[in-house]
Structure formats: structure tokens, C-alpha cells
Design a protein around this nucleic acid. Structure first.
Ligand SMILES: Nc1ncnc2c1ncn2[C@@H]1O[C@H](COP(=O)(O)OP(=O)(O)OP(=O)(O)O)[C@@H](O)[C@H]1O
Ligand SMILES: [Mg+2]
Ligand SMILES: [Mg+2]
Length: 517
DNA sequence: CTGGGCTGGT
DNA sequence: ACCAGCC
């Protein structure tokens, strides 16, 4: 028998991906039961029908379709405005809470967007209904489950029953129908989840994954986005939308070949995904998000900077209100970010952010926050690198609260806290190894453990130019809000810890201080 | 006249 | 600060 402490978690996982059917549209049906599901309903955001119920889809309305085209396809489409995500967010949270209640601790639950939930049930008990070896009645299978490795099949039959009961709970406790995919990895679960829908589920056996993936159009691979597609088309002019993953593997047979197209980090990952290999883990989604933002897009040109500022203030009020209701007392945002987009720059955005000393305490001084936001907007419109921006050309504003500091229970207890920074101030860049630096023996579920890296490696990686000669400390601090480790550098002048990418500009700021003196 | 968000990497 | 990716 192996020592339990070194026993690695089972390697082929049992992963469920639950996807809410036409989520925003279903939210409207749940909120307003008088709205019949047999009448076609579309959800509008500005000029887009972002999703539609299945009655509408039968009439030719698709996702992310222009309102004009949707109405042309289905003139009697009932349209609801979905620009305010508040209610959708609330339903999503309720669904997450339901899943969390039925799939506690050893199971991880990861949320993607508002309407997808990965559940890792590898370490859940065998489902009582899976004894017969039969699948749930609404569960399709890709390929022949019986032909696969017996143990693997038992795990996935049980997982299929867990998916079935999870969906049952979401239906009876929240009122939503869902579809699901079940497989030995996140990749497998995700790819089969949309095969049979709505209100159905699909399982795929481990031995089927590679061949199934190979037959898909290559754009179906999660992680292969528009940028990589563009690079692929430039290297291989023969590539079309119907090119399959198998075709691509012929063109790019090795991870090294992929790296030349997609980079040293993404390339090898994509090479593995194209072979159906995905060792990524389901990671529990933290209860507090890492950022909170509100944005508004507007087509008609804004006549003046004053007009822009009034939009900005409305968004700021909105995001602060959201912060109060969703995060409440303990968390304190440490920085404010304003982002704009201009028509002429396509879909690229430019942003400016400002740290707020001691955290953003707008209840004490709301005007101060408004002034900071206005200053950021003016900085953006004045233009940083590319010259001034035409005010009338701005067609989107985003206001974000970032870097939440939620005092952990130990730090909240009071007493001024020298903390990690002080403890490490004398330790030197290569002295500390986080958490004893123990080897991890198997899949690791928590984010903190994932960051169990040698600081020497980190320092060398992020700023090789500074690592050896300069008196710079690299810190790995626990970000309590996100429950993950953050890599920071300690400023020798002001005792702040700054992100590596902002180190240089931080130093420039100190130079400016000196000039003032 | 292509949304309104979010996470993670450099 | 910006980019790429996801819904
Ligand atoms: N690019 C996007 N921009 C804005 N909203 C989006 C975008 N992609 C997805 N959404 C919203 O997120 C929700 C979930 O997306 P998803 O792709 O699962 O479609 P869906 O509406 O749930 O339909 P389906 O039944 O096919 O899952 C949708 O309701 C959709 O409106
Ligand atoms: Mg989805
Ligand atoms: Mg969905």
C-alpha cells in the first residue's frame, strides 16, 4: 500500500462540464414565467442579438447575430434588453451555490463566464445509480463505451450519473435546463458538451478522445483563438475553415513546429490538445473576483469631453454600487482603471490606471474618486503614445475596480503588520523558498500550491536583467482576495511591492520625486 | 452600427 | 499597459 500522503490523485480524471441552455434567454423565462417558451425570444445588447431561446433558433435566429438580420429571419421575435447583467449574474451565482452544496470539498468547481461550470468528480463516491452499468436515459455516448478500459468506463458511468443529478438539482432548485459533457479531461468534457442539446448530456470514453478531436474543425480547439488562426493561415495558405485537427497535425507534427507558429508557451499546449491530451485541472473559482468592471458602448459620436465625463460618472456610480452589494465590507479595491476604445482603432483598447493610496474609500470621499477617474479619462483622451484622441471618436468606456485587498482573518485582528515584505526585506532574493519548496507529487487543486516555485527561478525568469547584480527583492505574496500567489518586486525606496511589468515606471516616478526635492 | 463582461501571461 | 483567450 502506498503512503497516503504521497498518493497522487488518479490521472485520468472524471470531469463534467455543465452549460446552461441559451442562458440569458432562460433567465428571462425564469424571471417571467408568463413569457412562453414557445414564442421566439432574443436578447439584445446594442445592435446584437447575443442569444435567443430555442423557439427562436428554430426560426433561424443565431447567437451574436445583428438585430437587423435576426428580425429579417424572424419578424415576430420578442426582444428583451440584456445590457444589464445584474440578474444573469445573480442566477449564475445561485446555480454555483447549488452545485457547491451538492459537490463539496474533494470536488473542484470552476466557473467559466456566467453559464459554464466544470466539476471534477474523480474523488467523489461511486454514484449509487451506476451499479447497473447503464447510463442515464438522457445521456448519449460518443463511440463504444463498452470497448474501453473497464475501470475508466466505470468512472465515467458514475460521472455521467453525477452529471445527471447535478442537472436535476439545477432544474428543480433553480429552474434552469442544462446540457453537459462528461469525459476524462476538461478538453473532452467541453468538446462533447454541445453535441446533444438542449437539456441532454454526452459522455466520451478515454480511448475515443484522440480520434474524436482529430475529426473536428481546428477552430473548435479551446485556446486556439483568432490570433493563432491568423498565424496559421499566414504560414499555410491552404488552411480553410473546414481544415480538421488531423489536417493540422499533418502540417505541424511536433510541439516544436507548433511553437514556431504559436510561441513557446501556447504552441506545445495546442500540440497536446490537438492529440486529445489535456492535463489541466479543474480549479475552484474563488468567491471574490479579481476585478469588477462596468462598460458601455455607444455608437453616436459624443460631442464633448463633458459628455464623455458624464458617461464615465454614471459607470463609476454603477461599479461602486456593484462593489457594495456583491463584495461588501471587508474587501478594499486598491486601484482604479479607465479604458476607452476608439472607432478608428478597430477593437483595440487603451487604458490608464491609478493606485489609490490606502485603498479606495469612496464613502469617505466620493468626489476624490470622481476626480481620479476624470483624470484618467483626460489622460487617455490627451493620448499617451499615439497623440491626442478625437473625443467624438471614442465609442466605449470601461471603469474597473482592481486589486482587491481583503484582510484575512489573521491580519484583520488588528496590530500593525510588518508582514511578508518586512520579513523578506533582509532575506535577499535567493534566500526564501516558498512553503518549504516541497515537491508536489500529483495534481494540485489549489492555486497557492500551484505557485510552489523556487524564487530563484522566478527572479531569473521575470527580470533576468536585474536578478544577480541589483539589490532587488522578488516577493511571492499571497493575494488573499484571489487566493493565489502574486509575484512582486520590493521597491527599496518606498517599501511598496510592485508588479514586475510596472517596475521601470515605478522607478521613473521616484526619479520625479527627486527632481521635485 | 460587433456586447458586456471575466481570467491569465508578459 | 497591453494582449490573448473564454463565455
Ligand atoms: N461574445 C459574447 N458576447 C456577449 N455575450 C456573450 C458572448 N458569448 C456568450 N455570451 C453570453 O453568455 C451566455 C452563454 O454563452 P453560450 O455560448 O453558452 O450560449 P448560450 O446562450 O448559453 O446558448 P447554448 O444553449 O448554445 O449554450 C449566453 O447567453 C450569451 O448571451
Ligand atoms: Mg457556454
Ligand atoms: Mg450556454
Amino acid at each position: 500500500m502506498q503512503d497516503p500522503s504521497t498518493l497522487a490523485s488518479r490521472s485520468p480524471r472524471a470531469v463534467i462540464l455543465i452549460d446552461l441552455d441559451c442562458f440569458y434567454a432562460q433567465c428571462e423565462h425564469v424571471r417571467d414565467p408568463a413569457l412562453s417558451t414557445t414564442t421566439p425570444v432574443g436578447i439584445q445588447q446594442k445592435n446584437i442579438i447575443v442569444t435567443a431561446n430555442y423557439a427562436a433558433r428554430l426560426r433561424g435566429v443565431g447567437k451574436l447575430m445583428l438585430v437587423h438580420d435576426a428580425l429579417r429571419a424572424c419578424p415576430d421575435l420578442a426582444i428583451r434588453n440584456g445590457e444589464d447583467l445584474t440578474h444573469y449574474r445573480a442566477y449564475s451565482k445561485q446555480i454555483w451555490a447549488t452545485l457547491r452544496a451538492h459537490f463539496p470539498a474533494p470536488c473542484a468547481i470552476e466557473r467559466l463566464g456566467l453559464d459554464e461550470f466544470f466539476i471534477d468528480v474523480t474523488d467523489a463516491p461511486v454514484h449509487p445509480d451506476s451499479e447497473t452499468g447503464q447510463l442515464p436515459g438522457d445521456c448519449h455516448a460518443v463511440g463504444d463505451l463498452a470497448g474501453d478500459d473497464l475501470l475508466a468506463v466505470e468512472a465515467l458511468v458514475s460521472a455521467s450519473w453525477w452529471a445527471h443529478t447535478a442537472r436535476h438539482h439545477i432544474l428543480t432548485e433553480c429552474g434552469f435546463t442544462t446540457s453537459a459533457g462528461i469525459g476524462p479531461s476538461k478538453l473532452a468534457a467541453k468538446l462533447v458538451s454541445s453535441l446533444h442539446k438542449p437539456n441532454l448530456q454526452t459522455v466520451i470514453a478515454p480511448a475515443m478522445v484522440a480520434v474524436y478531436v482529430a475529426g473536428l474543425p481546428f477552430r473548435a480547439i479551446p485556446g486556439l483563438g483568432s490570433s493563432v488562426r491568423k498565424a496559421l493561415r499566414e504560414h499555410f495558405p491552404t488552411i480553410t475553415d473546414s481544415t480538421t485537427v488531423a489536417d493540422l497535425t499533418t502540417l505541424l507534427p511536433t510541439a516544436a513546429a507548433w511553437a514556431r507558429i504559436a510561441g513557446a508557451r501556447v504552441g506545445p499546449t495546442l500540440a497536446a490538445l490537438c492529440r486529445g491530451i489535456d492535463s489541466s485541472l479543474v480549479i475552484d473559482t474563488p468567491t471574490t473576483p479579481t476585478q469588477l468592471s462596468v462598460e458601455d458602448a455607444f455608437a453616436s459620436p459624443t460631442p464633448s469631453i463633458t459628455d464623455l465625463e458624464s458617461r464615465l460618472f454614471t459607470l463609476l456610480q454603477s461599479v461602486l454600487a456593484r462593489f457594495d452589494t456583491e463584495l461588501g465590507a471587508p474587501a478594499v479595491p486598491k486601484s482604479l482603471r479607465v479604458t476607452i476604445r476608439t472607432r478608428s482603432s478597430g477593437f483595440k483598447r487603451t487604458s490608464a490606471s491609478a493606485p489609490v493610496v490606502g485603498g479606495l474609500r469612496w464613502r469617505a470621499d466620493e468626489n476624490a474618486v470622481l476626480r481620479v477617474a476624470r483624470g484618467l479619462l483626460r489622460k487617455l483622451v490627451a493620448g499617451g503614445v499615439g497623440g491626442a484622441v478625437d473625443v467624438g471618436d471614442v465609442n466605449l468606456i470601461n471603469v474597473a475596480l482592481v486589486h482587491f485587498d481583503v484582510p484575512s482573518s489573521s491580519t484583520a485582528a488588528g496590530a500593525a503588520q510588518p508582514t511578508l515584505l518586512a520579513q523578506w526585506a533582509r532575506a535577499g532574493p535567493r534566500a526564501a523558498v516558498l512553503d518549504g519548496g516541497g515537491e508536489t507529487t500529483g495534481p494540485v487543486h489549489d492555486r497557492a500550491a500551484r505557485a510552489r516555485l523556487d524564487l530563484n527561478d522566478i527572479a531569473a525568469r521575470i527580470r533576468p536583467d536585474l536578478h544577480d547584480d541589483d539589490d532587488v527583492l522578488v516577493l511571492v505574496e499571497h493575494d488573499d482576495a484571489a487566493d493565489r500567489m502574486a509575484i512582486l518586486m520590493a521597491c527599496p525606496f518606498c517599501a511598496a511591492s510592485v508588479a514586475p511589468w510596472s517596475w521601470d515606471v515605478h522607478m521613473v516616478a521616484h526619479d520625479a520625486d527627486d527632481n521635485i526635492d
